[in-house]
């Protein structure tokens, strides 16, 4: 299979799966088969059946509705975290590339410092300070996206600074900041979109990990990670409770990774 076909496959499958999950997440904003917060102890721990397509959990809640709600949480948290990372990181990277010298050094040192911090520990600390919840999970994950975007945009910008069109702009007398805004940034879009996809998928895993140890979205907001945690002691009684959210997470992240892969290969062709 040639690189071209492989790219098409990746792109197609990845885009398809990602779109599916995003549509489900958007749908969950308005409608789910049951209210995910509706407790019905009498119906607890039912296997998938005609009434509840994916069964019910230990408090009688519909698993399909919880899954859709969890998709909403995952997409929301990961997306916001990517925005935070990009909004703060890209300007930093551009500034570092444009300014060079000690400013560049300072930005890179700060980057290294954030990278040096074990991410999970910082997330736990943040939620300890501000209380657990989806918003704080967004902040914790978002903070770690900043150095990534800064590094990527700096690397891309440094390359762009050596190009002819930048040279032409400088000769024409444009200032560094204007050049960064008008010429460098648009050429980084491809790179940034690919990186955003990667960070998005990492964000989904991170949110699930935080929720698994109890620091992500709190009840009654549904979350895949929390569903997995609650399912652990029930595996003998209700194995589907552990498998279903895990498979959902696996497919979503897989789809995102394939999408990112396909986009990256596509952008590699571009100048």
């Amino acid at each position: 299979m040639s690189e071209h076909t492989a790219r098409n496959w990746s792109l197609a499958i990845g885009a398809g799966v990602t779109a599916c999950f995003i549509v489900v997440a958007l749908l969950a904003l308005f409608w789910t088969p049951f209210d995910p917060q509706l407790l019905n102890i009498v119906d607890k721990l039912q296997p998938p059946n005609a009434h509840h397509w994916l069964g019910t959990d230990q408090l009688g809640r519909d698993v399909l509705s919880l899954l859709m709600g969890g998709a909403k949480t995952s997409v929301g948290v990961a997306l916001l975290a990517v925005f935070i990372g990009a909004a703060a990181g890209v300007p930093l990277g551009l500034i570092a590339a444009a300014a060079q010298g000690s400013v560049d050094e300072a930005v890179m040192r700060a980057n290294d410092l954030i990278f040096a911090f074990p991410a999970l520990l910082l997330a736990i600390l943040i939620t300890a300070v501000f209380g657990p919840g989806a918003i704080n999970a967004v902040i914790a994950i978002g903070i770690f996206n900043i150095p990534v975007f800064a590094r990527v945009s700096r690397a891309g910008a440094l390359q762009a600074w050596t190009r002819d069109y930048t040279l032409a702009a400088r000769v024409a007398g444009k200032g560094r900041w204007r050049i960064s805004w008008e010429h460098i940034l648009p050429n980084l879009f491809g790179l940034l979109v690919v990186q955003a996809t990667i960070q998005f998928s990492l964000g989904v895993i991170a949110e699930a990990g935080l929720a698994y140890v109890g620091l992500g979205a709190q009840p009654p907001v549904p979350s895949w990670g929390r569903m997995l945690n609650e399912a652990q002691t029930l595996t003998a009684l209700a194995p589907w409770l552990a498998l279903i959210p895990g498979l959902a997470m696996l497919s979503f992240v897989l789809g995102l990774n394939l999408l990112g892969e396909g986009l990256r290969r596509g952008s590699e062709r571009a100048p």
Binding site: M1, A6, S201, I205, A208, G209, Y212, L228, Q232, T235, A242, G246, M249, L250, S251, V253, L254, N257, L258, E261
Partner: peptide, 21 residues
């Protein structure tokens, strides 16, 4: 392609879920 598929799967697998299984 096969190895690529397997590694993609490995990347997407949450390690705590894998631990549970």
């Amino acid at each position: 392609a096969l190895l690529s598929g397997i590694t993609q799967l490995g990347l997407a697998l949450p390690n705590f879920w894998l631990g549970m299984l």
